[in-house]
Design a protein around this nucleic acid. Structure first.
Lengths: 352, 352
DNA sequence: CTGAAAGCGCTTACAG
DNA sequence: CTGAAAGCGCTTACAG
């Protein structure tokens, strides 16, 4: 439609071809290096020149080619999200946060799921990062906890930010979620409600958060003089189905627990299901506390009491750390609040 | 660790640098063009040569540079998922399906959310697609329904597959979900259960599926001699919160509906919430039928009767269409089953 | 503040 | 079946 409007500026352009930096340079009557400087916001361009070049860029509808830039820069404009998390809800929330941070940065997000137990995991990740020459990588749990992967990233000189419940790396490449604090709060809460025969459904051993949340929970109970009985601990896999299995085991104990704390919300819903199937009413017959506070926690019935983790914010903050150097900031010194999980009391846990 | 093992093959390689196609060519004693042929699986390479080259590639740990290949090919190895869907669950499911199809293809997935009502939408998408020279794009609803976006993709010569409830394009770039069929089934089901004063919470007008599902539902009811009263139709936004609002409106009518069909599951959960708040028991006092059959449909209580859409499969099939030409197949003639939504009867709807 | 040359690591015609 | 040359569209030193 507006082809004619730009005829003057497009003079000499081959039809059907995208304008390149050469076209911009020719029409703006500068060298392509100067155009490159304008694109990359170099300060060494006279204001007048910059304006003229930007005007031509605008008129031509010029968009720098990511492949060509990447080839010359030896680095792409792609951020990788490498994950193995079994909870799609967790992943999608974090992904949204990462995208929040990337918006307007010129970087794009490549999602790369993988299987941590796969024999080819390390080779796969190496190929992915090397081939795409990623700008950087974000690693949610439990990918963040695999030192073989970290080793590869270091070797390939690929910046990364790890998200984990405890610190595993230097501040600039680490986002700590302090899960022991939230779990301790859950423990104190259940103890305060008068529970003492309490069950715990742990996440899988592969996740640091499983042990950290379990440890924090024990700690919180201990503060109130309660000891978690190992017979009342079941190991799940952070999935709904595993929550179902673990709940069956725990509720078959004699005497059964009066309350159950689960390593994440997904498994808490599994407890909900088993309780209903057994004719137990929550919270009257069984108190349940989850972890993560996914959106669904406040949509199920009864509303799930859960430890809130700001998953989306975590994704955003991790991405901001990754982008910090590009903005001339020190990733270790961003003015980011520490992640402090906190208990959201709803209706699924009550006094004994 | 194994550095020494490869010393022979790495002879002459600059330390600390990734091997390039030149290194492979030199060590295998062929031209780089031949190496390129092996990488791209050209049939015009002698078996013996191919084996030798692959061996050197293996020994060197050579990975072709995606940027360089993209620059030469004038096309990247990235597939874009451009979406504006308000339901994170829907998106994450579809995304998983797309990733299923991409696994092993050498292509990576770039996720690109956007706001359809934004003034810069078209320009944003143009810049994204042009800059990344995308291999192709997948468009879930309602992005799939925006003809301005399609126009840009055609102009940029970017292959795409649209996912929508009705056909909007040629078979090769279209995945039709036939939503009228599933909605009609929901209508017949509620009618068969004896309901006649039935509410409908529609999706937003921007989504074709809203009208298609509404139309199918009316059709199904009509088959049973029931007419949907416009006073019992509320318009939502496919979100939980909008479901809450719409349910409040419908349940405040005098007389209130005895059953509600919602345009998606997310809004059905909103109805669940309002019913509970009003002291109504589902399904005794109110029957509810949803659409999509997200995993959570079978995790809430009572289990939600819902029209099942194989969202993950849809993502996979759409991606397979996109990849078909690369595999020498005609995307219009893939042996894919048609998407047939079907009602999954659970516990949230019962006889009047 | 600006530019001409060389190069990033691949592939596409074009020959042979 | 194989290769030498040119080019994809940018940026990095290096000069001026």
């Amino acid at each position: 439609m507006t082809d004619d409007d730009t005829t003057s500026a497009r003079g000499g352009l081959k039809p059907g071809k995208r304008p390149t930096i050469n076209d911009v340079a020719r029409i703006a009557a500068v060298s392509k290096k100067t155009v490159s400087r304008v694109i990359n916001q170099s300060p060494f361009v006279r204001e007048e020149t910059r304006v003229r070049v930007n005007q031509v860029i605008e008129e031509l509808g010029f968009t720098p080619d990511a492949q060509a830039r990447g080839l010359a820069f030896r680095r792409s404009f792609l951020v990788g999200l490498i994950y193995d998390n079994p909870s799609p809800n967790y992943v999608v929330n974090m992904q949204q946060g990462v995208l929040d941070a990337l918006r307007g940065s010129g970087l794009e997000l490549v999602v790369h799921p993988c299987v941590r137990s796969s024999e080819t995991l390390v080779a796969d990740i190496r190929a992915f990062v090397e081939r795409q020459k990623l700008f950087g990588v974000i690693l949610p749990p439990s990918m963040s906890e695999d030192e073989r992967v970290i080793e590869v990233l270091r070797e390939l000189d690929c910046p990364y930010v790890r998200i984990a419940s405890v610190s595993l790396d230097e501040a600039g490449s680490m986002l700590v979620t302090n899960d022991h604090l939230g779990a301790a709060e859950a423990g104190r809460h259940l103890a305060d409600l008068g529970h003492s025969r309490i069950g715990f459904i742990s996440g899988p051993a592969l996740f640091r958060s499983s042990a950290v949340r379990g440890g924090g929970f024990r700690e919180g109970l201990a503060e109130k003089g309660i000891t978690l009985d190992d017979r009342y601990v079941a190991v799940g896999a952070y999935t709904f189905e595993s929550g179902v299995e673990a709940a069956k085991t725990l509720l078959a104990l004699d005497p059964p627990p009066t309350a159950i704390f689960t390593g994440n919300d997904e498994m808490a819903l599994g407890v909900f299901k088993v309780a209903r199937d057994m004719g137990l009413e929550i919270p009257r017959d069984l108190s349940v506390v989850g972890y993560d506070d996914l959106p669904m926690a406040s949509r199920v019935w009864p509303n799930l009491t859960s430890v809130r983790l700001p998953i989306r914010d975590m994704g955003r903050m991790a991405a901001e750390k990754l982008l910090a150097p590009m903005r001339g900031l020190d990733p270790a010194k961003l003015n980011q609040p520490e992640v402090r999980p906190s208990l959201v009391v709803r209706d699924s846990a009550t006094t004994l």
